[in-house]
Simulated assay, not measured.
Amino acid sequence: MTSPARSTPNDDRFTAETERFRRELLAHCYRMVGSAHDAEDLVQETYLRAWRSFSGFEGRASVRSWLYTIATNVCLTALAARPIRMLPSGLTGPYDGPDRAPECAGPDEVRWLEPLPDAWIAPAADDPAAVVIARESLRLALVAGLQHLPARQRAILILREVLAFSAAETAAVLDTTVAAVKSGLQRARSRLDEVTELDELIEPTDERARALLDGYIAAFERSDAGLLEKVLRSDATLEATPFLDWQSGRAMCIHVLGAYVLGAPGDWRMIATTANGQPAAVVYRRSVDGTLRADGAVVLAATATGVSRVVKFQDPALVALFGFPDVLAS
Rank of each mutant, 00 (worst) to 15 (best):
A5K: 11
N10I: 15
R13S: 14
F14L: 00
T15Y: 14
E17P: 07
T18W: 06
R23D: 12
R23F: 14
L25W: 07
R49M: 15
W51D: 09
F54P: 04
F57E: 00
F57D: 01
L67Q: 02
C75R: 01
A78D: 10
R82V: 08
S89R: 08
G90D: 09
A101L: 12
P102K: 02
A105C: 10
P115M: 03
W120I: 05
I121E: 00
A122N: 07
V131R: 09
I133M: 11
R135E: 01
L140K: 01
L146M: 03
A151Y: 03
Q153Y: 08
A155V: 01
L159W: 06
A167S: 14
A172Y: 13
D175N: 11
V181Q: 01
R187W: 14
A188G: 03
V195D: 01
E197D: 14
L198T: 08
D199T: 13
E203G: 14
E203L: 15
T205R: 13
D214V: 11
I217N: 01
A219T: 01
E221T: 08
E221G: 08
A225T: 02
L227P: 07
L227Q: 07
L228G: 02
S234M: 12
P242G: 06
D245F: 07
Q247Y: 13
Q247I: 12
S248N: 08
A251P: 03
H255P: 02
L262T: 00
D267T: 10
A272I: 05
R286H: 04
S287A: 15
G296C: 04
A301R: 06
A301W: 12
T303A: 07
A304N: 10
F313T: 00
D315G: 08
P316L: 05
A317V: 09
L321C: 08
V327T: 08
